[in-house]
Amino acid sequence: MAMPRFDLGQDPGTDFGLLLRRVGLTQPAGAGAVPEAPHATTCVALRHVDGVVIAGDRRATSGHLISHRTMEKVVQADRHSAVAIAGAAGPAVEMIRLFQVQLEYYEKVQGTALSLEGKANQLAAMVRQNLPAAMQGMGVVPIFAGYDTRRDIGRLWDYDMLGGRYEERDHVATGSGSLHAGTTLKLGYRSGLDRAAAITLAARALWEAADADSATGGPDVLRGIYPVVAVIDADGWARVDDEELAAVYAAIMDEAREAHS
């Protein structure tokens, strides 16, 4: 890519999406409904005393088939924030990639990072731009969670397909299993949860969603595939390792076994 230069009125400033359009690198719009395209499903996020926990299962489905078992729907957006996605997998992954680039691009061009709320608004604009694809069944419904370094708290946002942006106080769930995951969070949530309790609650919410929704994957003990669970606090993003999750799920499974014995 040769070095792009712009006249004063044409300069795209800190907007990477606009820069892509100016140099002619935009994606072509969706041509029609693609009902069998892979879809990603359930993600949850909740606040705890030190920040937020964000988690998502690993399954992507095409119609009634499982198309991926190891998809990562929860990804780090920058040092102190993460995005989780539900909806059409292709556009969602692309949206996240663009979002990550946009945050870092803004930070470098401007010399300071966007505020957490600024990042949430930026993501809303991207969801809104995806509206034509959403009308064809290729909608993307993300969760945005992060640690607000100016206020020293964890914060959560969810979105609708039209780009509506809603800040949530305690917890949020999105995707096909969100009814069950959301109910589990609602029943289990209390203020002042610590890190471990919040991880357990997120894991349980995904367990309940997988138990009742065929498009949500549970922990795959056979293959050693566990949901992606991450904690974001003042120290930034940290993914919870599989060993810790295996122990959490072993406890949940013991409970389930006991209930049915």
């Binding site: 890519m1 792009p4 230069r5 820069l19 680039v101 691009y105 061009v109």
Partner: peptide, 14 residues
């Protein structure tokens, strides 16, 4: 500087 960031980010994205 800004032109360099743009060129680099565009290459990396593309």
């Amino acid at each position: 500087r800004v032109a360099g960031i743009r060129a680099a980010e565009l290459t990396g994205y593309q």
